[in-house]
Simulated scan of single mutants.
Amino acid sequence: MSLQFSVLASGSTGNAFYLETDDHAFLVDAGLSGKAIEGLMAQIDRHLDKLDGIFVTHEHSDHIKGLGVLARKYELPVYANEKTWTAMEGHIGKIDSGQKFVFPMESVKSFGSLDVESFGVSHDAAEPMFYVFHYNGRKLALITDTGYVSDRMKGIIRSANAFVFESNHDVGMLQMGRYPWNIKRRILSDIGHVSNEDAALAMTDVIGDETSRIYLAHLSQDNNMKELARMSVQQTLAAKGLLAGETFDLFDTDPKKPTPLAAV
């Protein structure tokens, strides 16, 4: 019995995540065109007609761009909380009422042996939430699009076997970059995105003895680089005695290329 996953795409241009158990398969978010997501799935030798549904984190376009198209084409159930459903109206087209399911924040839904736990994050959306997946004693945690990682969030995601963790920007690059000040202020705020350093500091509180894989996600294409994010995170973790490459490994994600399927 295995829980496998791939970060199909991650970044400000679009986000989508795939996971499967022996009995079920789901997407989390569909923030690229339907055609692009079909292509990404093909790269990991998986097909959307095998999905059991899509979990939505929040209504920003880089998370729901292809949601309506895929839901209609493949007749997929879609799971989101009530405020997110309201905020998505007018952005995803008509979805049949039989495909619309409310997934309250801070709750658990079970699909066979897979338990899906939702939890709130701090972001400038209606009611943003992310997910922890529990299967056969294994735990996979997704957390991006949050301005900070609270103690409550840490308690929920702590000691996951694998993390997909936001490492959005380098503060220096952002401050010196081309973005207007109001956008910089939003990104740096408590309802924006987590920086490389803050992500690593949060990781030091949640990495457990069974943690084996950490994926650095939602990197800004303008205010970060894969090498910089990885180096910054590694240095901060090492200062706390957590050495990447020993008990756990760090992995990059990409806005246009899926990560290889990996087992938790």
Rank of each mutant, 00 (worst) to 15 (best):
V108F: 04
G98Y: 08
L174Y: 07
D170G: 02
I156H: 08
N81P: 07
V69H: 14
H193W: 03
S118L: 08
P77T: 02
T146K: 12
L142H: 02
N81S: 01
K83D: 11
T84N: 15
D96P: 00
Y131K: 09
S122F: 15
G68V: 09
E127Y: 06
G192Q: 06
E89D: 14
K94Q: 15
Y74N: 13
T84C: 13
N168K: 01
V121Y: 08
A160G: 05
M153H: 02
S110P: 00
A71Q: 13
A80Y: 09
D170S: 07
Q99V: 03
T144C: 07
P180W: 09
H123A: 02
M105C: 14
R158W: 00
S110F: 00
I191F: 01
S110K: 15
F111H: 11
I157Y: 07
G90Y: 07
S122Q: 13
V108T: 13
Q99I: 02
P104A: 10
L174M: 09
H193Q: 08
T84I: 11
S159C: 11
S97P: 00
S167F: 09
T146A: 14
D190T: 14
F163W: 06
V108N: 06
H91E: 13
R185F: 09
F130E: 10
L76G: 02
Y179V: 01
R185T: 03
L67P: 07
L70P: 01
G177N: 10
N168E: 10
V69W: 08
G192P: 00
E75F: 06
G120C: 08
F101W: 09
R186Y: 12
I157S: 09
M88P: 05
G98A: 04
D190N: 13
R185A: 09
M88H: 12
Y131I: 03
P180N: 13
W181G: 02
M105E: 14
V116M: 13
G120E: 15
K139N: 14
K154N: 02
S122V: 02
L174N: 07
S110D: 12
V171P: 00
G137D: 07
L114Q: 04
K100Y: 05
Q99N: 13
D190F: 10
I95T: 11
V116E: 11
F130Q: 12
V121N: 09
N168L: 00
K73S: 05
I95C: 04
Y74T: 10
Q175K: 11
G112K: 08
I92P: 08
V164D: 04
T144I: 15
T84Q: 14
N182S: 06
G137C: 02
A160C: 11
V78H: 11
P77E: 08
E106C: 10
T144N: 11
N81C: 09
V108H: 05
V69P: 03
I92E: 03
I143T: 10
K94M: 12
A71W: 08
D115L: 09
N136F: 04
V108P: 00
T144D: 02
M105P: 01
A125M: 06
I156M: 12
A162D: 05
M153E: 07
L76K: 01
D145V: 00
H134Q: 05
E127C: 05
R178G: 07
A71C: 12
L114G: 04
V194S: 06
M153W: 01
D96L: 03
P77Q: 02
A160V: 05
S97G: 00
P104V: 06
L76Y: 00
E106Q: 15
W85F: 01
H123C: 01
N136D: 15
V108L: 12
